[in-house]
């Protein structure tokens, strides 16, 4: 044990690592995604801070400024679409927990399509809105926050696509450690959904 020779004397044992002790009730991968989401919330926080400064500290006379309008009702439709997709995601996860594979695939497909619809409607909204991000601080924060959120929808959609490919290929099962590949994209998707409600309330409604 006392010198480098140790590695040589014991090196012949061709063995894998001893299993690590599990010192927490939370699965490491679930903990990982929760910590990652905490970090993501702070990233959104910095964008909300920029909005706060432009709107509350600078305090222009009107917000949105004269001549700028946001399609509040179109965005409400989008909100409903995204909230619905959280329920279909939940259905997908519950299905695999009961080993109901068709429900898993249908749920993931529905969630993916709803998320895609959301993104396409948002792209349409951008192209018809009548101003660009360079118009003024209002436009900058609008495109900043909705664009940051759109990027997160895109990441969420990619994760859903990965889970969908794997479930079509027959992966995942009812055991808790066997459907983490559905659960973790699901947690991320719910985060994206809740974050949209906050973005919608702050940017469009308030």
């Amino acid at each position: 044990m006392s010198t480098v020779a140790h590695a040589e004397t014991h090196g012949h044992d061709h063995h894998g690592p001893p299993p690590a002790n599990v010192s927490s009730r939370v699965d490491s991968r679930l903990l990982g995604i929760y910590i990652f989401i905490a970090s993501e919330i702070m990233l959104f926080g910095s964008f909300f801070t920029a909005l706060f400064f432009a709107r509350v500290i600078v305090a222009p006379e009107a917000w949105p400024p004269e001549g700028f309008h946001l399609p509040v009702y179109l965005a409400l439709v989008n909100t409903i679409i995204l909230v619905t997709s959280s329920f279909t995601m939940h259905w997908a996860l519950q299905s695999i927990k009961r080993n109901y594979r068709a429900g898993l695939i249908a749920g993931l497909t529905l969630t993916f399509l709803l998320g895609l619809t959301f993104l396409l409607i948002q792209a349409r909204e951008y192209s018809r809105i009548g101003f660009g991000p360079d118009a003024n601080a209002f436009a900058s924060t609008f495109f900043g926050l909705t664009g940051l959120h759109g990027a997160h929808v895109f990441v969420g959609l990619s994760l859903l696509a990965f889970a969908l490919v794997r479930s079509i290929r027959g992966h995942f099962g009812p055991d808790a450690h066997d459907h983490l590949g559905v659960e973790i994209p699901g947690i991320y998707w719910h985060f994206v959904d809740v974050m949209w409600i906050i973005v919608y309330m702050t940017v469009y409604v308030l």
Binding site: A50, N136, S140, T141, G144
Partner: peptide, 11 residues
């Protein structure tokens, strides 16, 4: 964009 440009209402 105008996040920090006072000319466009930034701070």
């Amino acid at each position: 964009t105008n996040f920090f440009d006072p000319g466009g209402g930034g701070y």
